[in-house]
Design a protein around this nucleic acid. Sequence first.
DNA 1: CCTGGTTGCTTCGAGCTCGAAGCACGTAGG
DNA 2: CCTACGTGCTTCGAGCTCGAAGCAACCAGG
Lengths: 168, 168
Amino acid sequence: MTDPTPGLNSEQLGAYFALTEVSSLLQYAVDEHLRSAGDLSYVQFQILARLVHVPGGKLRMTDLADGVVYSRSGLTYQAGLLDKRGLITRSPSPDDERSVIVTVTDAGRDLIARVLPEHAERVRQLLFEPMNGQDLAALSAILGRVREHMRATPPRSAKPRAARGRGN
Amino acid sequence: MTDPTPGLNSEQLGAYFALTEVSSLLQYAVDEHLRSAGDLSYVQFQILARLVHVPGGKLRMTDLADGVVYSRSGLTYQAGLLDKRGLITRSPSPDDERSVIVTVTDAGRDLIARVLPEHAERVRQLLFEPMNGQDLAALSAILGRVREHMRATPPRSAKPRAARGRGN
DNA sequence: CCTGGTTGCTTCGAGCTCGAAGCACGTAGG
DNA sequence: CCTACGTGCTTCGAGCTCGAAGCAACCAGG
Protein backbone atom coordinates (compact mmCIF):
# COMPACT_ATOMS: atom_id res chain seq x y z
CA MET A 1 0.00 0.00 0.00
CA THR A 2 2.91 2.37 -0.57
CA ASP A 3 1.67 3.47 -3.93
CA PRO A 4 -2.10 3.69 -3.75
CA THR A 5 -2.77 3.42 -7.48
CA PRO A 6 0.16 2.80 -9.71
CA GLY A 7 -0.31 4.32 -13.13
CA LEU A 8 -2.90 6.86 -12.12
CA ASN A 9 -2.38 9.90 -9.96
CA SER A 10 -5.13 10.94 -7.62
CA GLU A 11 -6.49 13.62 -9.92
CA GLN A 12 -6.85 11.10 -12.71
CA LEU A 13 -8.43 8.66 -10.35
CA GLY A 14 -10.93 11.26 -9.25
CA ALA A 15 -11.80 12.14 -12.83
CA TYR A 16 -12.22 8.48 -13.67
CA PHE A 17 -14.62 7.90 -10.79
CA ALA A 18 -16.49 11.10 -11.53
CA LEU A 19 -16.92 10.06 -15.14
CA THR A 20 -18.22 6.68 -14.14
CA GLU A 21 -20.64 8.08 -11.63
CA VAL A 22 -21.91 10.90 -13.78
CA SER A 23 -22.71 8.71 -16.71
CA SER A 24 -24.32 6.13 -14.46
CA LEU A 25 -26.55 8.66 -12.78
CA LEU A 26 -27.42 10.21 -16.10
CA GLN A 27 -28.39 6.89 -17.61
CA TYR A 28 -30.51 6.03 -14.64
CA ALA A 29 -32.38 9.28 -14.75
CA VAL A 30 -32.91 9.14 -18.47
CA ASP A 31 -33.87 5.50 -18.45
CA GLU A 32 -36.44 6.08 -15.79
CA HIS A 33 -38.05 8.86 -17.75
CA LEU A 34 -38.15 6.95 -21.01
CA ARG A 35 -39.73 4.01 -19.30
CA SER A 36 -42.45 6.03 -17.68
CA ALA A 37 -43.07 8.35 -20.61
CA GLY A 38 -43.00 5.93 -23.50
CA ASP A 39 -42.41 2.50 -22.01
CA LEU A 40 -39.05 2.42 -23.72
CA SER A 41 -35.73 1.24 -22.41
CA TYR A 42 -32.72 3.37 -23.15
CA VAL A 43 -31.54 0.91 -25.78
CA GLN A 44 -34.87 0.96 -27.53
CA PHE A 45 -34.84 4.72 -27.48
CA GLN A 46 -31.37 4.78 -28.96
CA ILE A 47 -32.40 2.44 -31.75
CA LEU A 48 -35.46 4.46 -32.65
CA ALA A 49 -33.70 7.79 -32.30
CA ARG A 50 -30.95 6.66 -34.57
CA LEU A 51 -33.40 5.47 -37.18
CA VAL A 52 -35.41 8.67 -37.04
CA HIS A 53 -32.21 10.62 -37.37
CA VAL A 54 -31.13 8.85 -40.55
CA PRO A 55 -32.39 9.95 -44.00
CA GLY A 56 -34.66 7.12 -45.11
CA GLY A 57 -35.45 5.86 -41.64
CA LYS A 58 -33.80 2.58 -42.59
CA LEU A 59 -30.64 0.90 -41.39
CA ARG A 60 -29.12 -2.56 -41.50
CA MET A 61 -28.83 -4.36 -38.18
CA THR A 62 -25.06 -4.19 -38.35
CA ASP A 63 -24.98 -0.45 -38.89
CA LEU A 64 -27.38 -0.06 -36.03
CA ALA A 65 -25.14 -2.10 -33.78
CA ASP A 66 -22.14 0.01 -34.69
CA GLY A 67 -23.82 3.07 -33.23
CA VAL A 68 -25.36 1.49 -30.20
CA VAL A 69 -22.79 -0.39 -28.15
CA TYR A 70 -24.88 -3.44 -27.48
CA SER A 71 -24.12 -6.92 -28.74
CA ARG A 72 -25.70 -8.30 -31.87
CA SER A 73 -27.81 -10.77 -30.01
CA GLY A 74 -29.04 -8.06 -27.71
CA LEU A 75 -29.92 -5.94 -30.67
CA THR A 76 -31.89 -8.77 -32.21
CA TYR A 77 -33.80 -9.16 -28.97
CA GLN A 78 -34.65 -5.49 -28.69
CA ALA A 79 -35.53 -5.23 -32.35
CA GLY A 80 -37.93 -8.11 -31.78
CA LEU A 81 -39.67 -6.18 -29.03
CA LEU A 82 -39.89 -3.00 -31.09
CA ASP A 83 -41.21 -4.98 -34.03
CA LYS A 84 -43.87 -6.59 -31.89
CA ARG A 85 -45.00 -3.15 -30.79
CA GLY A 86 -45.17 -1.93 -34.35
CA LEU A 87 -42.53 0.74 -33.90
CA ILE A 88 -40.21 -0.73 -36.50
CA THR A 89 -40.44 -3.25 -39.32
CA ARG A 90 -37.81 -5.71 -40.41
CA SER A 91 -37.34 -6.93 -43.95
CA PRO A 92 -34.57 -8.70 -45.81
CA SER A 93 -32.35 -6.46 -47.88
CA PRO A 94 -32.80 -6.77 -51.66
CA ASP A 95 -29.05 -6.40 -52.12
CA ASP A 96 -28.00 -9.01 -49.65
CA GLU A 97 -30.40 -11.69 -48.52
CA ARG A 98 -28.56 -12.08 -45.23
CA SER A 99 -28.99 -8.50 -44.15
CA VAL A 100 -32.05 -7.27 -42.34
CA ILE A 101 -33.21 -3.74 -43.03
CA VAL A 102 -34.82 -2.09 -40.04
CA THR A 103 -37.27 0.73 -40.73
CA VAL A 104 -39.05 3.06 -38.33
CA THR A 105 -42.79 3.10 -38.69
CA ASP A 106 -44.91 6.20 -38.30
CA ALA A 107 -45.86 4.99 -34.86
CA GLY A 108 -42.18 4.85 -34.03
CA ARG A 109 -41.63 8.35 -35.28
CA ASP A 110 -44.57 9.63 -33.33
CA LEU A 111 -43.36 8.02 -30.15
CA ILE A 112 -39.91 9.51 -30.46
CA ALA A 113 -41.33 12.90 -31.27
CA ARG A 114 -43.43 12.62 -28.16
CA VAL A 115 -40.72 11.65 -25.70
CA LEU A 116 -37.77 13.50 -27.16
CA PRO A 117 -38.49 16.96 -25.78
CA GLU A 118 -38.68 15.82 -22.19
CA HIS A 119 -35.72 13.55 -22.68
CA ALA A 120 -33.63 16.43 -23.95
CA GLU A 121 -34.85 18.66 -21.17
CA ARG A 122 -33.75 16.15 -18.59
CA VAL A 123 -30.33 15.81 -20.05
CA ARG A 124 -30.01 19.54 -20.19
CA GLN A 125 -31.07 19.91 -16.61
CA LEU A 126 -28.84 17.21 -15.21
CA LEU A 127 -25.79 17.48 -17.37
CA PHE A 128 -25.62 20.96 -18.82
CA GLU A 129 -27.20 23.10 -16.16
CA PRO A 130 -23.98 23.39 -14.18
CA MET A 131 -21.90 24.22 -17.26
CA ASN A 132 -21.17 27.44 -19.00
CA GLY A 133 -20.30 27.83 -22.68
CA GLN A 134 -16.61 27.46 -22.01
CA ASP A 135 -17.10 24.26 -20.06
CA LEU A 136 -19.18 22.80 -22.83
CA ALA A 137 -16.59 23.62 -25.45
CA ALA A 138 -13.82 22.14 -23.35
CA LEU A 139 -15.80 19.01 -22.57
CA SER A 140 -16.74 18.50 -26.20
CA ALA A 141 -13.17 18.86 -27.32
CA ILE A 142 -11.80 16.48 -24.72
CA LEU A 143 -14.47 13.83 -25.07
CA GLY A 144 -14.29 14.00 -28.83
CA ARG A 145 -10.60 13.37 -28.73
CA VAL A 146 -10.94 10.57 -26.20
CA ARG A 147 -13.64 8.94 -28.25
CA GLU A 148 -11.52 8.92 -31.35
CA HIS A 149 -8.63 7.56 -29.36
CA MET A 150 -10.74 4.76 -27.90
CA ARG A 151 -12.19 3.79 -31.24
CA ALA A 152 -8.72 3.65 -32.67
CA THR A 153 -7.33 1.64 -29.76
CA PRO A 154 -8.11 -2.02 -30.30
CA PRO A 155 -9.24 -4.10 -27.34
CA ARG A 156 -6.30 -5.80 -25.63
CA SER A 157 -7.14 -9.43 -26.30
CA ALA A 158 -9.49 -8.94 -29.21
CA LYS A 159 -10.53 -11.22 -31.95
CA PRO A 160 -9.29 -9.74 -35.21
CA ARG A 161 -12.82 -9.96 -36.55
CA ALA A 162 -15.03 -6.92 -37.03
CA ALA A 163 -12.94 -3.95 -38.05
CA ARG A 164 -15.23 -1.47 -36.25
CA GLY A 165 -15.57 0.93 -39.19
CA ARG A 166 -18.45 -0.10 -41.48
CA GLY A 167 -18.53 -3.79 -42.21
CA ASN A 168 -18.17 -3.86 -45.97
CA MET B 1 -38.42 17.96 -37.82
CA THR B 2 -37.88 21.69 -37.85
CA ASP B 3 -36.13 21.69 -34.53
CA PRO B 4 -34.05 18.52 -34.37
CA THR B 5 -33.71 18.37 -30.60
CA PRO B 6 -35.65 20.86 -28.58
CA GLY B 7 -33.82 21.76 -25.40
CA LEU B 8 -30.38 20.74 -26.56
CA ASN B 9 -28.26 22.43 -29.16
CA SER B 10 -26.12 20.29 -31.40
CA GLU B 11 -22.97 20.88 -29.42
CA GLN B 12 -24.67 19.69 -26.27
CA LEU B 13 -26.08 16.71 -28.08
CA GLY B 14 -22.64 15.81 -29.35
CA ALA B 15 -21.14 16.07 -25.89
CA TYR B 16 -23.95 13.93 -24.49
CA PHE B 17 -23.40 11.19 -27.03
CA ALA B 18 -19.66 11.37 -26.63
CA LEU B 19 -19.99 11.02 -22.87
CA THR B 20 -22.25 8.00 -23.25
CA GLU B 21 -20.00 6.32 -25.72
CA VAL B 22 -16.76 7.03 -23.92
CA SER B 23 -17.96 5.66 -20.65
CA SER B 24 -19.46 2.62 -22.36
CA LEU B 25 -16.29 1.79 -24.21
CA LEU B 26 -14.24 2.36 -21.10
CA GLN B 27 -16.40 0.07 -19.00
CA TYR B 28 -16.27 -2.63 -21.62
CA ALA B 29 -12.51 -2.53 -21.87
CA VAL B 30 -12.04 -2.47 -18.13
CA ASP B 31 -14.61 -5.15 -17.50
CA GLU B 32 -13.00 -7.44 -20.00
CA HIS B 33 -9.62 -7.07 -18.36
CA LEU B 34 -10.91 -7.63 -14.84
CA ARG B 35 -12.71 -10.74 -15.92
CA SER B 36 -9.70 -12.26 -17.60
CA ALA B 37 -7.17 -11.13 -15.00
CA GLY B 38 -9.02 -11.87 -11.80
CA ASP B 39 -12.35 -13.36 -12.76
CA LEU B 40 -14.04 -10.27 -11.37
CA SER B 41 -16.89 -8.27 -12.76
CA TYR B 42 -16.60 -4.52 -12.65
CA VAL B 43 -19.07 -4.33 -9.79
CA GLN B 44 -17.13 -6.85 -7.76
CA PHE B 45 -13.96 -4.95 -8.41
CA GLN B 46 -15.58 -1.74 -7.28
CA ILE B 47 -16.77 -3.32 -4.08
CA LEU B 48 -13.39 -4.76 -3.24
CA ALA B 49 -11.50 -1.64 -4.28
CA ARG B 50 -13.68 0.50 -2.10
CA LEU B 51 -13.16 -1.77 0.87
CA VAL B 52 -9.44 -1.89 0.40
CA HIS B 53 -9.38 1.86 0.13
CA VAL B 54 -11.17 2.41 3.41
CA PRO B 55 -9.26 2.47 6.76
CA GLY B 56 -10.40 -0.71 8.50
CA GLY B 57 -11.36 -2.58 5.37
CA LYS B 58 -14.92 -2.67 6.66
CA LEU B 59 -18.10 -1.02 5.46
CA ARG B 60 -21.80 -1.43 5.96
CA MET B 61 -23.80 -2.63 2.98
CA THR B 62 -25.56 0.69 2.76
CA ASP B 63 -22.36 2.71 2.68
CA LEU B 64 -21.07 0.39 0.05
CA ALA B 65 -24.19 0.90 -2.03
CA ASP B 66 -23.86 4.66 -1.78
CA GLY B 67 -20.53 4.51 -3.56
CA VAL B 68 -21.36 1.88 -6.11
CA VAL B 69 -24.49 2.78 -8.04
CA TYR B 70 -26.08 -0.64 -8.07
CA SER B 71 -29.30 -1.51 -6.35
CA ARG B 72 -29.37 -3.01 -2.91
CA SER B 73 -30.53 -6.35 -4.14
CA GLY B 74 -27.79 -6.40 -6.71
CA LEU B 75 -25.27 -5.61 -4.06
CA THR B 76 -26.52 -8.45 -1.90
CA TYR B 77 -26.15 -10.80 -4.83
CA GLN B 78 -22.61 -9.73 -5.63
CA ALA B 79 -21.59 -9.75 -1.99
CA GLY B 80 -22.85 -13.32 -1.86
CA LEU B 81 -20.55 -14.28 -4.70
CA LEU B 82 -17.56 -12.53 -3.18
CA ASP B 83 -18.28 -14.16 0.15
CA LYS B 84 -18.45 -17.59 -1.44
CA ARG B 85 -15.05 -16.98 -2.98
CA GLY B 86 -13.58 -15.95 0.34
CA LEU B 87 -12.75 -12.42 -0.78
CA ILE B 88 -14.96 -10.78 1.81
CA THR B 89 -16.74 -11.77 5.01
CA ARG B 90 -20.11 -10.58 6.24
CA SER B 91 -21.07 -10.20 9.87
CA PRO B 92 -23.83 -8.43 11.72
CA SER B 93 -22.89 -5.09 13.19
CA PRO B 94 -22.57 -4.99 16.99
CA ASP B 95 -24.12 -1.52 17.02
CA ASP B 96 -27.09 -2.31 14.90
CA GLU B 97 -28.27 -5.87 14.46
CA ARG B 98 -29.84 -5.03 11.13
CA SER B 99 -26.67 -3.83 9.49
CA VAL B 100 -24.21 -6.13 7.83
CA ILE B 101 -20.55 -5.27 8.05
CA VAL B 102 -18.58 -6.30 5.01
CA THR B 103 -14.86 -6.87 5.47
CA VAL B 104 -12.19 -7.59 2.89
CA THR B 105 -10.17 -10.69 3.58
CA ASP B 106 -6.46 -10.99 2.89
CA ALA B 107 -7.31 -12.94 -0.21
CA GLY B 108 -9.43 -10.03 -1.34
CA ARG B 109 -6.63 -7.58 -0.72
CA ASP B 110 -4.19 -9.75 -2.59
CA LEU B 111 -6.47 -10.06 -5.55
CA ILE B 112 -6.99 -6.32 -5.80
CA ALA B 113 -3.29 -5.68 -5.41
CA ARG B 114 -2.72 -8.10 -8.24
CA VAL B 115 -5.17 -6.67 -10.73
CA LEU B 116 -5.03 -2.99 -9.86
CA PRO B 117 -1.85 -2.05 -11.69
CA GLU B 118 -3.03 -3.34 -15.02
CA HIS B 119 -6.46 -1.93 -14.43
CA ALA B 120 -5.02 1.51 -13.79
CA GLU B 121 -2.75 1.19 -16.77
CA ARG B 122 -5.67 0.44 -19.03
CA VAL B 123 -7.65 3.38 -17.79
CA ARG B 124 -4.64 5.60 -18.25
CA GLN B 125 -4.09 4.37 -21.74
CA LEU B 126 -7.66 4.65 -22.90
CA LEU B 127 -8.86 7.68 -21.05
CA PHE B 128 -5.88 9.84 -20.15
CA GLU B 129 -3.46 9.19 -22.97
CA PRO B 130 -5.08 11.79 -25.22
CA MET B 131 -5.24 14.43 -22.49
CA ASN B 132 -2.76 16.98 -21.28
CA GLY B 133 -2.62 18.45 -17.81
CA GLN B 134 -4.92 21.27 -18.71
CA ASP B 135 -7.52 18.90 -20.12
CA LEU B 136 -7.41 16.83 -17.00
CA ALA B 137 -7.87 19.82 -14.75
CA ALA B 138 -10.78 21.08 -16.83
CA LEU B 139 -12.43 17.67 -16.97
CA SER B 140 -12.05 17.17 -13.24
CA ALA B 141 -13.55 20.53 -12.48
CA ILE B 142 -16.50 20.08 -14.80
CA LEU B 143 -17.29 16.50 -13.84
CA GLY B 144 -16.93 17.32 -10.19
CA ARG B 145 -19.44 20.09 -10.50
CA VAL B 146 -21.82 17.98 -12.54
CA ARG B 147 -21.60 15.16 -10.08
CA GLU B 148 -22.49 17.41 -7.18
CA HIS B 149 -25.33 18.84 -9.18
CA MET B 150 -26.71 15.41 -10.02
CA ARG B 151 -26.48 14.20 -6.48
CA ALA B 152 -28.32 17.27 -5.34
CA THR B 153 -30.99 16.98 -8.03
CA PRO B 154 -33.63 14.52 -6.88
CA PRO B 155 -35.02 12.04 -9.40
CA ARG B 156 -38.15 13.42 -11.05
CA SER B 157 -40.73 10.98 -9.76
CA ALA B 158 -38.82 9.72 -6.79
CA LYS B 159 -39.88 8.24 -3.56
CA PRO B 160 -38.80 10.59 -0.78
CA ARG B 161 -36.98 7.67 0.81
CA ALA B 162 -33.19 7.47 0.94
CA ALA B 163 -31.63 10.89 1.32
CA ARG B 164 -28.62 9.95 -0.82
CA GLY B 165 -25.98 11.56 1.40
CA ARG B 166 -24.90 9.10 4.09
CA GLY B 167 -27.83 7.39 5.67
CA ASN B 168 -27.66 8.28 9.34
C1' DC C 1 -44.87 -2.10 27.59
C1' DC C 2 -47.38 -1.88 23.17
C1' DT C 3 -48.11 0.04 18.44
C1' DG C 4 -46.96 2.16 14.15
C1' DG C 5 -43.53 3.78 11.35
C1' DT C 6 -38.66 3.55 9.62
C1' DT C 7 -34.50 1.38 8.24
C1' DG C 8 -31.21 -2.47 6.56
C1' DC C 9 -30.92 -6.30 4.21
C1' DT C 10 -32.50 -10.46 1.65
C1' DT C 11 -35.60 -13.17 -1.33
C1' DC C 12 -38.24 -13.55 -5.41
C1' DG C 13 -39.87 -13.13 -10.20
C1' DA C 14 -39.40 -11.12 -14.55
C1' DG C 15 -36.68 -9.32 -17.87
C1' DC C 16 -32.29 -8.05 -20.12
C1' DT C 17 -27.38 -9.01 -21.52
C1' DC C 18 -23.77 -11.47 -23.34
C1' DG C 19 -20.94 -14.98 -26.03
C1' DA C 20 -21.12 -19.38 -28.28
C1' DA C 21 -23.17 -22.06 -31.50
C1' DG C 22 -26.10 -22.51 -35.50
C1' DC C 23 -28.03 -21.33 -40.03
C1' DA C 24 -28.34 -19.15 -44.44
C1' DC C 25 -26.44 -16.36 -47.82
C1' DG C 26 -22.39 -14.54 -50.42
C1' DT C 27 -17.84 -14.81 -52.49
C1' DA C 28 -13.38 -16.52 -54.12
C1' DG C 29 -10.46 -20.10 -55.96
C1' DG C 30 -9.97 -24.07 -58.41
C1' DC D 1 -19.90 -25.95 -61.01
C1' DC D 2 -18.16 -27.17 -56.38
C1' DT D 3 -15.79 -26.37 -52.24
C1' DA D 4 -14.20 -23.60 -48.49
C1' DC D 5 -14.36 -19.71 -46.08
C1' DG D 6 -16.35 -15.17 -44.57
C1' DT D 7 -20.37 -12.52 -43.12
C1' DG D 8 -25.19 -11.22 -41.10
C1' DC D 9 -28.41 -12.46 -38.19
C1' DT D 10 -30.88 -15.43 -34.83
C1' DT D 11 -31.28 -18.92 -31.16
C1' DC D 12 -29.82 -20.69 -26.85
C1' DG D 13 -28.17 -21.07 -22.06
C1' DA D 14 -26.29 -18.95 -18.19
C1' DG D 15 -25.84 -15.21 -15.48
C1' DC D 16 -26.82 -10.49 -13.87
C1' DT D 17 -30.06 -6.55 -12.88
C1' DC D 18 -33.82 -4.37 -11.00
C1' DG D 19 -38.02 -3.27 -8.06
C1' DA D 20 -41.48 -5.22 -5.12
C1' DA D 21 -42.43 -7.77 -1.33
C1' DG D 22 -40.89 -9.83 2.96
C1' DC D 23 -38.51 -10.04 7.45
C1' DA D 24 -36.06 -8.50 11.43
C1' DA D 25 -34.36 -4.86 14.27
C1' DC D 26 -34.59 -0.05 15.80
C1' DC D 27 -37.19 4.10 17.27
C1' DA D 28 -40.72 7.04 18.59
C1' DG D 29 -45.17 8.24 21.06
C1' DG D 30 -48.56 7.12 24.19
